[in-house]
Design a protein around this nucleic acid. Structure first.
Lengths: 178, 178
DNA sequence: TCAGCGTGTTTCGAATTCGAAGAGTAGGCC
DNA sequence: GGCCTACTCTTCGAATTCGAAACACGCTGA
């Protein structure tokens, strides 16, 4: 399991072009990517061991388990995860093979596929969840006191809203008019 | 390009097991992963358009261009990126095919492979870099004022050091005896 | 010198990912 | 009704990723 070691020298990137640029400005960029990668790796190991789930699979099951009904359309799931539609189709198929969820037609919109958690799926996610949360605490939250956690959330929320506001660059490109 | 939509309800995960757990505690976790994914997607699109590079490939070239000599061993690169050794071998091969870098034996340690940037590689990274930094500013840094950026860096640095301090969970497993 | 272990890298097979293309439904407009 | 655009999902092929195993070198100790 390899990981980003340090980002201090990455800040010198600006030197390559302008020689003496403001590298400090980009430190949050590298820090963000590195921290995220480290967290995700740590979490993946635990999920694999405890429930033979990839992080993506866990996210799908966890998202379904949030709602009482435990049903979502493919699009609703894809919009919240970082995977392509085709990639989601693949993973949902895998989970369906294992009997953790089912797929069926939607009553409201016949184009849609409704994904629903099964009893096995519910049981698995509930079995995995405590350990998952423990690992998240261990590798991430323990590094922060309450104030830091709130501050980090506030900053990342700003970032999220900023990025959500701009077009995804490759989805639903600017309509010809209006 | 699909992305995580919201994380507010993911916080209810705790309800699935304990019913009424402290979901707010885990908000930084989801916010971190989501923000990172959004940033990375935005950056990838630009790199693909401007230099036909994946994010990983860009990272490799950028890391090499940091040092004046422009040489690194495979392990040194892998330790700083989030890819397996085998994955790094693959990507370095791709870049070598394009003439952006070369591989050769190390004088100091004959087990090592030394990766060096070529003139083409240097030219490419310097051509791509300004646009890359512009996109990073646009999608990430513009969301933060100077103080926020510094604060975010401080928090992520805490997280990084915390995570770097613990064993990677699957590398160099606990030795049989001290 | 030889065995044995740790380290550095690549090869190999399998799993996962994406984008583009295809099939089908929804809704607006004539 | 018929057409056209938008939306939903899946299939397909290609690229990328990983872990385990293989391979090679370096060091230590007998």
């Amino acid at each position: 399991m390899c990981q980003i070691r340090s980002n201090s020298r990455m800040g010198d990137m600006a030197d390559s072009t302008g020689r003496g640029g403001p590298p400090a400005e980009f430190t949050p960029y590298f820090a963000l990517l590195e921290a995220s990668a480290l967290v995700q790796h740590g979490v993946e190991a635990q999920l694999r061991e405890s429930g033979d789930l990839s992080f993506v699979q866990f996210q799908i099951l966890a998202m379904l388990s949030e709602d009482a009904g435990g049903t979502q359309t493919m699009t609703a799931i894809a919009d919240r995860l970082v995977h392509s539609r085709s990639g989601l189709t693949y993973q949902v198929q895998q989970l369906e093979k294992r009997g953790l969820l089912t797929r069926g037609p939607s009553a409201e919109d016949e184009r849609s596929t409704v994904v629903a958690l099964t009893g096995s799926g519910t049981a698995l996610i509930q079995r995995v969840l405590p350990g998952h949360m423990a690992v998240v605490r261990e590798i991430l939250l323990d590094a922060l006191d309450a104030g830091d956690g709130a501050e980090l959330t506030r900053l990342l929320e700003k970032v999220r809203q900023h990025m959500r506001a701009r077009p995804p660059r490759s989805a639903t490109r600017a309509r010809p008019r209006g």
